[in-house]
């Protein structure tokens, strides 16, 4: 563990993507600063909700934490080790402790693999257990996520979005990780299914002491599962704090505008919110775009 007891400690993380131009010879003409100096910590067993709009850099941050994308600079300390300095083999070993659940349960499961193969793949890759032991583990995992273990020989297309997301979660759990990065895990699902998956993630966290970095654009969903909230805008964290505080008294102007824009299922409250959002709309990207268009 790190000095202050955090499981994950991200400091000054940046990720820049080059902008290339030219037909024959690529020239780098500039950089998109997708992640631009992000720092946060997550304690063991805690959920940090990372919210922001599309293009804010929240998913890129998640990928950089897992070293699925190589950060341009900055430090990612996980379980006391500096991930950005690890060699291939060390990193591979660390991957057992950190897994990811993706947004789109239709795209993130190989359609040619059976459910059993999908869930056992991480076990095979890391050489865990015998064939027979793995089969037992897979059954157990599927049961834990509320997926009928009788269906291990079926294929993903036979299942609904919610069921597929359960398969994805079972796969993420297979190696008994400490940290799971959840990248928009419920945004492709219907409301009633979304509630089931959120409850499942909460139960798993309680039962296995999991730590989540929960990335999502839906502020209501994030609130339902997060202890602390980090709000991201244009590659930077504009506000980090305990969920109740961020939601009830947002300090940053952008956080306020984002919160005001969320429609709530209450016609009376909606009237007030419309007023509020007109007051704060000027900080938003579209307002900037309009201004830029008007200047051309």
């Amino acid at each position: 563990m790190s000095t202050n007891g955090a499981l994950l400690e991200v400091t000054d993380l940046t990720k820049h993507f080059p902008i290339k131009q030219g037909l024959l010879f690529d020239r780098t003409v500039g950089h998109v600063k997708a992640v631009d100096g992000v720092s946060f910590q997550i304690a063991e067993g805690e959920t940090l909700g990372l919210v922001g709009e599309s293009g804010s850099g929240k998913s890129t941050t998640g990928y950089c934490v897992l070293q699925l994308l190589k950060p341009t600079s900055g430090s990612v300390r996980f379980m006391g080790r500096e991930l950005t300095e690890l060699g291939r083999e060390d990193l591979r070993r660390m991957r057992r402790e950190m897994q990811i659940v993706f947004q789109d349960p239709y795209a993130s499961l190989d359609p040619r693999m059976t459910v059993g193969d999908i869930v056992s793949e991480p076990l095979v890759v890391h050489g865990v257990g015998s064939r027979r032991a793995r089969r037992e583990t897979v059954r157990g995992l599927l049961e834990v996520v509320g997926f009928n273990p009788e269906y291990t020989n079926r294929y993903p297309h036979e299942f609904s979005g919610g069921q597929r997301q359960r398969i994805g979660i079972a796969r993420a759990l297979a190696l008994n990780p400490k940290l799971i990065v959840c990248d928009e895990p419920v945004s492709a699902l219907d409301v009633s299914i979304q509630a089931q998956i959120l409850n499942l993630l909460k139960d798993l966290q309680r039962d296995f002491g999991l730590t989540y970095l929960f990335i999502a654009h839906d502020l209501a969903v994030v609130r339902a599962i997060s202890d602390r909230i980090a709000v991201m805008n244009q590659g930077r964290l504009v506000e980090v704090g305990p969920a109740a505080e961020v939601y009830s008294s947002p300090q940053d102007e952008y956080t306020r505008a984002l919160l005001a824009a969320v429609p709530v299922p209450d016609p009376r409250k909606m009237k007030e919110r419309k007023e509020e959002r007109r007051r704060v709309a000027h900080v938003l990207a579209e307002a900037a775009e309009e201004a830029a268009l008007a200047d051309e």
């Binding site: 509630a195 209501a220 609130r223 339902a224 997060s226 109740a244 939601y247």
Partner: peptide, 16 residues
């Protein structure tokens, strides 16, 4: 089943 953005204690409870 809807989580509410302005609901306190939603973290500790389960969604319907």
């Amino acid at each position: 089943a809807l989580p509410h953005v302005d609901e306190e204690h939603v973290r500790e409870s389960r969604l319907t």
